[in-house]
């Protein structure tokens, strides 16, 4: 099955998914994603890893995100236009998240929940 799909000859007419990988690679990616998710959950439960929890989890999440985006969503094979269309908003979204977190962490200092 994977031989068949890895050979793009049959998909000749469509430029947009002519280079798409086949089930073999998809299964490989799925295995990697499963392992990474298992790692995430393990990290969560191991008490000794708590101090480095955030960086590890963030890295793992970014790697999973990138794998799905690149292979399942074919960004790695498709036109770079699509990557641009997706990555630019992603960066902007990150900017918004970090901006708001910074702004509100300042606010935390001047808050009073006790209404006088």
């Amino acid at each position: 099955m994977s031989d068949h799909a890895l050979n793009p000859a049959h998909a000749g007419h469509d430029v947009s998914h002519e280079d798409h990988p086949g089930p073999g690679l998809y299964l490989l990616i799925a295995a990697i994603l499963t392992v990474l998710t298992a790692a995430e959950i393990t990290v969560f439960y191991v008490p000794g890893l708590q101090p480095v929890l955030v960086p590890i989890l963030l890295v793992l999440a970014i790697v999973k995100f990138a794998f799905v985006g690149m292979f399942y969503m074919h960004l790695y094979y498709d036109s770079k236009v699509f990557t641009t269309l997706f990555v630019f908003p992603l960066l902007l979204a990150l900017l918004i998240v970090f901006g708001l977190l910074l702004l509100f962490s300042h606010l935390q200092g001047v808050l009073s929940f006790v209404v006088p």
């Binding site: 606010l107 808050l111 209404v115």
Partner: peptide
């Protein structure tokens, strides 16, 4: 005497 400041519930400016 100078500019304004918003008076915001839950926040002391």
């Amino acid at each position: 005497l100078g500019g304004k400041r918003d008076v915001i519930p839950g926040q002391v400016n």
